[in-house]
Nucleic acid binder design. Sequence first.
DNA 1: TTGTAGGCGTTATCAG
DNA 2: CTGATAACGCCTACAA
Lengths: 328, 328
Amino acid sequence: MTIYDIAKSAGVSASTVSRIINHKEGVRESTRRRVEALLREHHYSPNETARGLVNQATRIIGILLMDIRTLHHTDGVYYIERELEKLGYCCIIMNSGSTDAEKAEYIRRLSRRRVEGAILIGSGFQNDTVRQAISEYLPDTPVVLVNGMLDLPNVYGVLSDERSGMERCVERLVAAGHVHPAFVIDTQTPSNLLKRAGYEQGVLRCCPGYAPVVVHSGSSLAEAADATRALMREHPQVDGILYAVDLLAIGGIRALLEMGRKVPDEVAVIGVDNSIYAEICTPRLTSLDNKLLDTSITAAQTLIQVLQGNRAPKNVMIMSTIAERETG
Amino acid sequence: MTIYDIAKSAGVSASTVSRIINHKEGVRESTRRRVEALLREHHYSPNETARGLVNQATRIIGILLMDIRTLHHTDGVYYIERELEKLGYCCIIMNSGSTDAEKAEYIRRLSRRRVEGAILIGSGFQNDTVRQAISEYLPDTPVVLVNGMLDLPNVYGVLSDERSGMERCVERLVAAGHVHPAFVIDTQTPSNLLKRAGYEQGVLRCCPGYAPVVVHSGSSLAEAADATRALMREHPQVDGILYAVDLLAIGGIRALLEMGRKVPDEVAVIGVDNSIYAEICTPRLTSLDNKLLDTSITAAQTLIQVLQGNRAPKNVMIMSTIAERETG
DNA sequence: TTGTAGGCGTTATCAG
DNA sequence: CTGATAACGCCTACAA
């Protein structure tokens, strides 16, 4: 069902039908009504692909994540989609995976789809391969990074100050008498490395004479529990643990309790993300709230401003807070 | 950068460039190499919109959910996107919201985008408004419902037998001596209504002389806790509670523990979805595993079969199991 | 082996 | 007010 079909059965030309579909004026009221009736009757639905071609505007936004299952990104995706949808854009979502080659490949796919803008969620996109892919394949498309930044004229960044947030977490532990904090990290994302740097900075500042203890872990509950057991075995003096992500912290708490350590009295625990996990577990988890939803909201608003031809700040940082609960 | 630009700078015609891009044979090796070099140099990326128009194939799949934030749907979305992506499709994701009018509107949007297939996730799409919208706007597009079915020639369904699963949950409680089970429900989705029916059937069969107790709750942790307190106040004999969703159960457990009821000894609790929440909370939650990820996987495979012109079963049901943990 | 012409569904620009 | 006509970028006969 094309405008030609409609035009034929209405006895008018395609241009007239087009005018009516697009609510342009300069159409006799009677023809308009006649054609509109036909449109409804045939359930005509305009072909956005064809429109995109002639209008040179696809009204498509690309959302790229390494893995949409990451809990704290889903909320952001939801918000971004809903905001953009209001403006008539539709969102294609892609899970790139975590290798550089994959990320670059997906930048190219966004390019082929001629997206009018893109939002890259996760600090993992802050890297040089991605930077180059963008400069080659999306040089004129506004791109917003959630929790990352890239020095390119068309790339905007919305960051969370996880680094200083982590430092404040150390401060908090020390103030409560936990002067031997450790840090558990899983993936080596820029974000996690910042958290680590914040932890080390905090130790340097607040725990004179104490050497930072950093432990690597897998990303699952069980692996975090294992890592925690090993940590406490090798560093029995540790009396506070910062985990790069809430879920790790929950695995850790479980291990600590099983080892008979009291949380938080003997060992305090703080996670990151302030996710619903922190609310659900027992004891309820104190967590660094890195405002991931706010960063996504800001990213959506930044993109919208740019799409509408307005100015937007190139990089902004959103301040984190500590959501205080029972574990630290 | 179009094939014409490339053609001009290579001194050939656009069709030759097109042939090379699409790896067709019948091109002299030397021209091929020359053009390919140019393609790379200019970072040419084919316009999928234009391709879609001439090929009459957008290679776009629509994924529709009421709300992507629903935890147990995210995994499915991930899997679906990854599977379809392998075949060169890209996925547009839309959050429709929960009203009938919104759902119909989004069906229309999928139609305008000329998606080649659609996956509707959530039992909420099993309703007559959606059915009509599909029959009017996507009459020839393969559509797969996750956890729902619709009697239309182009609509496939992948269901979870939550009804009988719930019935087995009642059986389980009764076998453990909890002969006065209640049911807590939040939204009135077809899925939740099936769970309720299963509960009532189970009571009828296993608890002679006992009248079903069904309580309505909001969807948040706090509301579930409130509903549970009210439930225990008004029906003190209740010794087992089935919750329509894990998260409700977690709120409920919290309330029960605060009221000094032992879980599961005095009151057993079972949730639905077997989500990570069930693993994280304390005590760990027994949950009806409705195999939502399997339904999404099957949905993706069904769609792929149909897209490739193969036959696929019109409606399949995946059997649920009970994930036994500590609460019931 | 390569080029030309026509068309995919729509919109925009002119004439009439 | 309405209707031709020419794009948009690409692909596919068909012709050379």
